[in-house]
Design a protein around this nucleic acid. Structure first.
Lengths: 137, 137
DNA sequence: TTTAAACTCTACTACTTTTATGGAATTAGT
DNA sequence: ACTAATTCCATAAAAGTAGTAGAGTTTAAA
């Protein structure tokens, strides 16, 4: 399941993607339109900024705007930024690989191989869903 | 990501699946073989019992055994039992449907449709992985 | 240079989930 | 009946998540 942060991030990105080119949206606008607690959204937008998905303009008349193209932001990206690994266990993850502490022999693990298969399929599906593809509907 | 409970449950089921027919395994045996904290495993086995995946015999010389066939226990089943919905949001879930509290109109939600696609693909992949298929490797 | 409007950062609280523990109930054998 | 071995159950401790609060920084305009 997605965390609230990831869900809110997606909703915020969808909102930004629907604005005119070069338009800057204030946090409060996004929060109200997408029904997200404003102070919580502030943190999320900062995370998105640090992830280089959105840009910001500070000060009066400041706000946020999409930095990457709608087509280049995928569900997989947002999942990784807020919820981490897409694989079901860290030992089966590409970007967040970590050895299981309870694992005695990774090569003999009966689980790992199956979970890598799942990861590949899930990842492919998630990379197919972009902000642009979601807006189009 | 899977919770530790789900991971341990899978490891315990794999252990049970590798025992002789009619063999009863004590918690401590499973815990040591699969490197799982024993007291934690007790809870997990109870959950598996309540889910009718394993059966138990109480008292001295008691223990656990597989109740369902190896072929009828899928990754999807275990995920649902311990970690709940397979969908990324409750509003896109088949078995754990719940309306998002921040949702103003589910039918107009741009996210939901995409997440249902992901759910279908993930579910299909997870249902293809059974305890039997994992043991075979 | 002052003010207002906005983003940025840090810390805190409440809540939920995860993990761990202690003890009660059950069973088999003597 | 007693004892030892084992499952079963309720609750406590720890960790993570969701959301809040407030002060600090930046910018534009008057």
């Amino acid at each position: 399941m997605l965390s609230h942060k990831a869900k809110y991030a997606l909703k915020a990105l969808l909102f930004l993607a629907q604005q005119d080119e070069n338009h800057i949206s204030r946090t409060i606008e996004i929060a109200e339109a997408a029904n997200i607690p404003k102070k919580f959204l502030e943190q999320i937008l900062l995370d998105l900024k640090r992830g280089h998905f959105v840009g910001s303009k500070q000060g009066k008349f400041g706000g946020y705007y999409l930095l990457k193209s709608k087509n280049d932001i995928t569900l997989a990206d947002i999942h990784r930024l807020f919820d981490g690994a897409i694989a079901l266990l860290p030992c089966a993850s590409l970007n967040f690989y970590e050895r299981c502490s309870d694992c005695t022999s990774e090569s003999e693990c009966l689980l790992r191989q199956g979970l890598m298969t799942i990861r590949d399929e899930t990842l492919k599906a998630m990379q197919g869903i972009t902000i642009a593809s979601l807006v189009k509907k």
